[in-house]
């Protein structure tokens, strides 16, 4: 797999892991499909109906801050999110996502260059992100 293409689902800054995966579901420890049913459920419940497998999350700075709960990365992976592009990423979430095989890219000012529901393509080897709608090209950090 040399590239990932998908539709963008966009968030702002400081999206914390309590928001991604609510604390009341932490008792789900092994059933990964079940975790996927609760992504963003408490604060952005529309995600579960509007997002679709294959979507790419684009967000601002400090994505995944807060609790170390690995369910926050697992739920997105098993929901079918194919990649995450952020302006910066909190360290525990970053390592959790990559350990689970959910690619995370860090790209400065990505929120200014990509909008909600744009279609984009990420080259996994070069880190080059192409906005298919505007043809704008962004280089992710290596």
């Amino acid at each position: 797999m040399a590239s990932i293409t998908g539709r963008v689902y966009k968030f702002g800054d400081n999206i914390n892991t309590d928001v991604i995966y609510p604390g009341k579901y932490l008792s789900i420890t092994t059933d990964r499909e079940e975790m996927a049913k609760h992504c963003f459920e408490a604060v952005y419940p529309e995600f579960l109906t509007n997002a679709k497998p294959g979507d790419i999350i684009v967000a601002g700075k400090n994505f995944g801050c807060g609790s170390s709960r690995e369910q926050a990365a697992t739920c997105l992976k098993y929901f079918g999110i194919s990649a995450i592009i952020v302006e910066s990423c909190a360290r525990i979430f970053y390592r959790n996502a990559i350990n689970l095989g959910l690619p995370v890219f860090v790209a400065a000012n990505v929120c200014q260059k990509i909008d909600h529901h744009d279609d984009i393509e990420i080259d996994l080897e070069t880190g080059i992100i192409k906005n298919m709608k505007t043809n704008e090209v962004i280089q992710a950090a290596k």
Partner: peptide, 15 residues
């Protein structure tokens, strides 16, 4: 636990 001069940090479950 850094309060004790320990290099102490949070990690994920897979790690």
């Amino acid at each position: 636990h850094g309060a004790f001069g320990t290099f102490a940090t949070g990690i994920g479950a897979t790690e």
